[in-house]
């Protein structure tokens, strides 16, 4: 699997993604500056978390309109895989690669804490190493993670099986108390229709080391398994 990690001014979570990808692939991914426009040869492009452009205007809005994002769009259009985490998810929605938007958290506060994600389907390139219905711990660290889309879009996402993860209790119950940021239908992550672009707010890449717990590692193991060729 050939992976690349995009860095924008203000991105600050690229190291965690690089560590996670290096751990599962055994080689260091390509680091891509936001002015680059050639992503040929890559299987997976990752947009990491952080505060691109200081979150000015709207989170991810300015990053979504940089040169590299045209290349990411082309990469996705030719069937390449894209993973956006946290600010990366916000950038994907701002770029129109995923529907909806991330609003200010329901309680207006920045949330830095663990949450639990229920895997809604385990037959995608991002989740094939999870059990069906698995629940895993993932840290969240965001001020604007409250997923919003209009009712038709939410119905379509659910109807077409494009909800990737929901906020849940450790035993997998999707209840309001586990949905800390108030996301519509407790959605923590969604797929594109071809299941090759995934955006999610929490950080599976933070939990890949045995010392801290490897709760998030199956996501990266899944990618290696699915994109091994």
């Amino acid at each position: 699997m050939k992976a690349g990690v995009v860095i924008f001014p203000g991105t600050n979570r690229e190291r965690d993604i690089l560590i996670a990808l290096t751990l599962v692939t055994g080689c260091r991914p390509r680091v891509i500056w936001y002015k680059e426009t050639d992503l040929s040869g890559l299987d997976l492009v990752v947009l990491p978390g952080g505060f691109s452009y200081g979150d000015y205007l709207r989170c991810g809005a300015i990053a979504a309109r940089t040169p590299v994002m045209d290349a990411v769009r082309q990469h996705a259009a030719r069937g390449g895989y894209v993973l956006g985490v946290c600010n990366g998810f916000q950038i994907l929605t701002e770029a129109g690669l995923l529907p909806g938007a991330l609003l200010r958290n329901r309680g207006l506060r920045f949330l830095a804490r663990d949450c639990y994600l229920r895997v809604e389907r385990s037959d995608t390139a991002f989740t094939c190493r999870f059990e069906q219905g698995a629940v895993f711990r993932a840290p969240m660290a965001h001020g604007d993670g409250n997923y919003y889309a209009d009712v038709e879009t939410l119905d379509r996402l659910e109807g077409e099986g494009l909800v990737a993860f929901r906020y849940a209790t450790p035993d997998g119950q999707v209840v309001p108390q586990a949905n800390f940021n108030g996301s519509a239908r407790a959605i923590a992550g969604i797929y594109s229709p071809n299941l090759r672009t995934l955006g999610l707010m929490p950080h599976p890449e933070d939990l890949v080391d045995p010392l801290l717990g490897q709760d998030g590692k199956p996501l990266f193991d899944s990618l290696v398994q699915a994109l091994a060729a």
């Binding site: 929605t93 909806g100 938007a101 609003l103 919003y148 889309a149």
Partner: peptide
Amino acid sequence: RKLLANPVI
């Protein structure tokens, strides 16, 4: 339309 407002929200 292009940048200042996000029509989704």
